[in-house]
Amino acid sequence: MKRVILEVASNRPLTPLVYEMQLTGDTSAVTRPGGFVEISLDGLFLRRPISVCDFDDGRLTLVYKIVGKGTEQMAGLQVGTKIDVLTGLGNGFDTTLCHSHALLVGGGVGVPPLYRLTRNLIAEGKQVSVVLGFNTQAEIFYADEFRKVGAEVIVATADGSQGIKGFVTDAIRQTGIDFDYFYACGPLPMLKALSEATDKPGELSLEERMGCGFGICMGCSIQTASGAKRVCKEGPVFKKEDIIW
């Protein structure tokens, strides 16, 4: 964990509620896909945990959805604003668990952390199929970004306005993707349905209301098959067999 001051380099809407923010500065603590950062915002007591979408030397990309006062304030941050950020939080995904063909499944605002994961898996010479689930066409974001870095992309919308009509599990069944390991991030019902729909092993990224974000307050603890774990510290990524549904 490292506390740094980062500068907003861009901040633009991808859909009416989902924004992409680029930050520049010391990003040295961000090393694995699937981790998160915590942003300090004016007038709010607790920091806001936001998953890392992508990172390079000196640049951090966050894709976030406006769900409350914190993210609403983030959406209003102007280019050039300096913000106090705790970086390098959470365990992240383990790309070595996939041998040759990974299935990545993202639901709504669970999509962003899969982007850097895709880049890493492809850099390791693995085949990547990404299934992105949204409610409707207007909510779709990042499908092209995944294609540009070499992933096969399948979009599912609950209302059928684009791609396959239905949930991500419907899309996986219909397309019959042959994978050896899966990685997923999204709403709990989606993660549960996905885990039940496949016998293959996988890693899932969970979300929980956090206090500190770095393991000291026990605010985000969950029960797992291997005991109590903190979503912020031992997680947010857990192995499928560890999760108690």
Partner: peptide, 12 residues
């Protein structure tokens, strides 16, 4: 183990 989550709420 403690209480079920959510265990945390933001306040002014």
């Amino acid at each position: 183990f403690g209480n079920p989550t959510p265990r945390i709420a933001e306040c002014s």
